[in-house]
């Protein structure tokens, strides 16, 4: 089973590693940006699946969706990966493995705060012996987060040895970002972001750009495309 799990690990971390952007590392923060509906959740769930397939534990935090809906995201993506490898018969075993190592926490009706997240993590450690190595924070209201909040998040990550992945929606009508800076609304807190990606529509597909890595401005188009149908990443030659 482990061999198959390694084989499935094609999306998206392996592609990022190949292109020299392996991830933010423990106690650091990566941000995935893009317009509404472009596939940020798919991308970030892909990061989650990848971590799970390599045996890591993850905590997926979301504000809007029910636990069942988020599970469906993972299940669908895993199904797609297995279908591509023609290994659907292993679905149940791998899914069970994934369920064991993943916890989904949703906060409804404006109940999210960094302190609550910290309390939640403590409860998980004390009562479930669950300490995640990857924290995924999807669909948070990024506009409301301050630089201090991001630093707090990173301190939590550093304490438990977890890296942090977040998503952030950019707006079509927002002004062009200044050279060397992230688009709105991430520009306000860009000092707190260690690694930043942008999902850019291109000829009916979605191309991944890396804007910043290891706190340095990069702004490079990657050889990676997100298939809008399967929501899987694949190699795509640059224009």
């Amino acid at each position: 089973m482990t061999d198959l799990m390694i084989q499935l690990r094609r999306s998206p971390r392996t592609l990022l590693e190949r292109d020299g952007h392996p991830g933010p590392g423990a106690g650091r923060l990566a941000l995935v940006m893009g317009r509404a509906g472009i596939g940020k959740t798919a991308f970030i769930v892909g990061i989650g699946i990848d971590a799970l397939l390599s045996g890591q534990k993850i905590l997926h935090v979301s504000l809007e969706r029910s636990v069942d809906k988020i599970r469906t995201w993972y299940d669908d993506l895993l199904m797609e990966l297995l279908r591509r490898e023609k290994k659907l018969e292993h679905w149940a075993a791998i899914q069970l493995e994934i369920e064991r190592n993943r916890h989904i926490q949703t906060y409804l009706g404006g109940t999210f705060s960094i302190d609550r997240l910290k309390t939640g993590l403590k409860l998980m450690r004390d009562y479930m012996e669950f300490v995640p190595q990857v924290l995924i924070l999807d669909r948070l209201e990024f506009e409301k987060l301050s630089l201090e909040d991001l630093e707090k998040l990173k301190a939590i990550g550093a304490e438990i040895g977890a890296e942090i992945w977040m998503s952030c929606r950019t707006h079509r009508d927002a002004p062009q970002p200044e050279a060397g800076h992230l688009p709105q609304p991430a520009n306000r807190v860009e000092k707190g972001i260690d690694l930043a990606f942008d999902l850019v529509p291109q000829d009916g597909k979605v191309r991944l750009h890396v804007l910043k890595d290891d706190q340095k401005w990069v702004n490079e188009e990657l050889n990676i495309l997100l298939n809008p149908k399967t929501l899987l990443l694949r190699t795509g030659v640059k224009r």
Binding site: S66, R71, E99, R100, Q105, L108, T111, G120
Partner: peptide, 9 residues
Amino acid sequence: MIAGSTEDA
């Protein structure tokens, strides 16, 4: 096996 939790008010 705990799949997840939801907080609400």
